[in-house]
């Protein structure tokens, strides 16, 4: 009774620099497991963002490019256009994708570029030390919103899945989370489905993962999971927002 469990081949042995309890590590493993299961490691190019995951390239054992802040979708476009046979995925945080990179992500999705995006939404800027992100919740404290996000002055948090789903171009758009094992398993299925759509050269695929940032939320790892479930999930509902079949 029971199962084995081991590190996926697509992950290197490097210890990550992520903070204790940061869910980046879980998502890295899921992406690596999917890369292994689809047997695409030798044909894959990852694109790292600017943010906590900038050094994702130390943790994945496949070709990698490091983008400027927010520009990973444009780089992935460049890759897929000149080498459509390569598999490409961008791994981006909410500052990278929904703030400075909003133009790039919307147009890449609208062109239906055949790459996959893994979007880590932890409602804060991690690497730079806890500033407000486009996904920061109303009233949520950040170093640049010391009294909590004032929606009168900074607007409401941006829901990327809903926003991208309004684009008429076919695509796969799903929001998942990794706050509990049952969610992790569903997130993996969505990530795998996204990469499969790419492998079939079918459509653009986008998986948002509601994640935690214990350090910059100022909470323990466990409290972060709870806070994310109580506060983020109601505002960022999980599910598949768009599939190419529709």
């Amino acid at each position: 009774m029971g199962k084995t469990f081991s590190k996926p081949e697509a992950l290197t042995d490097a210890h990550t620099h992520y903070c204790p309890g940061c869910t980046h590590g879980i998502v890295h493993r899921l992406v690596a497991e999917v890369i292994d299961e689809l047997g695409i490691r030798e044909n894959t190019v990852g694109i790292a963002p600017v943010g906590c995951a900038v050094m994702a390239y130390n943790y994945f054992d496949c070709d990698f490019q490091e983008a400027a802040h927010g520009r990973a979708p444009a780089m992935a476009t460049g890759i897929k256009r000149v080498r459509p046979d390569l598999m490409a995925f961008t791994y981006q945080g909410d500052g990278d994708l929904a703030s400075i990179g909003m133009g790039e992500i919307v147009h890449a999705a609208n062109r239906g570029e055949k790459f996959t995006t893994i979007f880590i939404n932890n409602a804060i800027y991690g690497m730079t030390g806890g500033q407000m992100a486009p996904t920061t919740m109303p009233g949520q404290r950040a170093t640049t919103a010391p009294a909590g996000r004032d929606v009168e002055a900074t607007g409401m948090p941006i829901r990327m899945c809903e926003l991208l789903s309004t684009l008429a171009t076919p695509g796969y758009i799903s929001r998942q989370t990794v706050l509990k094992p049952k969610y992790v398993n569903k997130a993996k299925k969505a990530i795998k489905k996204a990469f499969e759509y790419q492998k079939e050269n079918r459509c653009y695929s986008f998986v948002e993962i509601v994640s935690t940032c214990p350090t910059n939320w100022g909470m323990t790892p466990l409290d972060s999971l709870k806070w994310a479930e109580d506060t983020l999930l109601p505002y960022y509902p999980l599910g598949e927002f768009k599939t190419p079949e529709e």
Binding site: G2, T4, F5, K7, Y18, C22, G25, P181
Partner: peptide, 23 residues
């Protein structure tokens, strides 16, 4: 008491837990 259900492995952000051997 471990039943090797891998839930800890699934939640570990650092792949620090493995379950080896043959089922």
């Amino acid at each position: 008491d471990c039943i090797h259900c891998t839930l800890c492995c699934v939640m570990c952000p650092d792949v620090a837990i493995t379950i080896t051997g043959s089922e």
